[in-house]
Amino acid sequence: MSKARNNIINRLRTTKPEPCHFSERDHLSRFNWDKEERINRFVERMVAVRAEIIHASKDDWAEKIAEICQEKRLKNMLVSPETAQGKVLYNMVDQLPDLQSYDHEIEDWKSEMFNQTDAGFTTTLGGIAETGSLILWPTKHEPRLMSLVPPVHIALLDTNQLYTTFSEVVKEQGWVDKGMPTNALLVSGPSKSADIEQTLAYGVHGPKELVVVLIS
């Protein structure tokens, strides 16, 4: 087994790959959508997969989230107190449901997290208009489970960070120079899955609802 393994490795090291030539692809070069077009296309694609879009301004986005919580009758919401946006929400606790923070190991409160948490609020790194996707870059303050476990995911997106394509995101945000994230998430609508008969079902393996608050 060891000899066969070494033979394979030696062949890989000595084989010179043939040069690859790619023609220019439209989705990599389309950067001519203005901001209004990016917003329209993003909203259209998100709504098509049953996401909710709430338009807000820099001054009233927190109040919009309070309204969402009231309309959905949320009893609690997972919010990081360490982000700038989270601090704003913690300063208006009288208008919001019980705010919870992800400040301890998941093993210590797994049952509560999976069975008793109504919603999770996260910020975003940006959005992609072409596919109708949110870009989440999980951190220790906003771990991945905050957007994947609660039945309702409320995400905040500044339209100034709404890009045309994924390649534009990588280029404009300098992912290559700054280092690729260890865990970047692209979220396109609430959770969905299809069985062998290709019947699409929502909310099977994650949030049943996705609410995107767009700040313009």
Rank of each mutant, 00 (worst) to 15 (best):
K208D: 14
S29W: 01
A4V: 11
W137C: 02
M77G: 01
R11K: 10
S133H: 05
T164W: 05
G86A: 09
Q161G: 01
V176P: 03
D26W: 14
T139A: 00
F166E: 02
P143S: 00
R73K: 08
L185N: 11
R11A: 05
K75M: 02
E209S: 11
V149I: 12
V79K: 03
E142V: 02
G127S: 06
Q161E: 12
S147H: 04
K58H: 12
K178R: 15
P143M: 00
N10S: 08
R30A: 00
S216M: 04
M77A: 09
P150I: 00
T159L: 01
L134K: 04
S23Y: 14
I135C: 08
R13V: 10
T83H: 09
M77P: 07
F121M: 00
D59Q: 11
P143W: 00
D108T: 15
L96P: 09
R50S: 14
R38F: 10
T14Q: 15
Y102V: 06
G203L: 08
N40F: 08
N6R: 08
L12W: 04
G126E: 00
R38N: 06
E168P: 06
L125P: 00
P151T: 01
A51S: 15
L99V: 09
H55F: 14
P97Y: 08
P190N: 10
T131P: 02
F166R: 03
R38E: 04
I106D: 11
Y102G: 00
G86T: 10
M180K: 13
E209V: 09
Q95Y: 10
T124W: 09
D94K: 15
E130H: 11
Q173H: 05
E107Q: 14
